[in-house]
């Protein structure tokens, strides 16, 4: 089964991330699932969101196992602090992760503080998506079609 994010849900998720970005003075905010898929992204940096998502999901999965070993349900957040940039990962629900990247001009306390209401909002939106009625737009309900010139992967031309 596919995870499907319709346009109206993307807009709701984006609104939360935009607000979080502004309040916390972070560079990037990214929402990903435990499989490493990027659900939503806001920010202007040049980091590859797909790589951040893959590694973030990996880090969080590893920390969850460490928590389990120590008898905790989970570590709800992980902070990697660097000299110039830091990354803060926080669980939204059992399968979704919020990743925030911020520079040293941002305050780590504010990042943590503002992530709390944002996570609550995101959790609510994800619950609405999972349990709410389906109202896809007309564009969203068209069947998928393979491209007539569909090319998968081929060798580079010498």
């Amino acid at each position: 089964m596919a995870q499907i994010l319709h346009e109206k849900d993307s807009v709701r998720l984006r609104k939360v991330l935009v607000q979080l970005l502004a309040r916390s003075e972070s560079d990037d905010c990214l929402l990903c699932d435990s499989g490493g898929h990027v659900l939503a992204l806001e920010g202007a940096s040049k980091h590859d969101p797909f790589l951040i998502s893959a590694l973030g999901a990996g880090i969080f999965g590893a920390s969850r196992e460490l928590a389990r070993m120590l008898g905790e349900n989970e570590f709800s957040a992980v902070l990697h602090q660097g000299e110039h940039r830091s990354i803060f990962l926080r669980a939204v629900d059992a399968d979704t992760l919020l990743v925030m990247i911020f520079s040293r001009s941002a305050n780590v306390g504010l990042v943590k503080l503002y992530s709390t209401p944002a996570v609550d909002d995101l959790r609510q939106i994800l619950a609405d998506i999972q349990h709410g009625p389906s109202v896809p737009g007309p564009e969203d309900s068209r069947p998928f079609v393979l491209s007539p010139d569909a090319q998968l992967f081929s060798l580079r031309k010498e």
Partner: peptide, 29 residues
């Protein structure tokens, strides 16, 4: 690589388009 990608696409098309023929189900599961 190409074969597994084709199989994945085929399954995706089959499952998704069949669902679209009935009720559109919105799910994040």
């Amino acid at each position: 690589l190409n074969m597994v990608a084709r199989l994945v696409l085929h399954k995706f098309m089959t499952v998704h388009n069949r669902k679209e023929e009935g009720a559109c189900e919105l799910a994040l599961v």
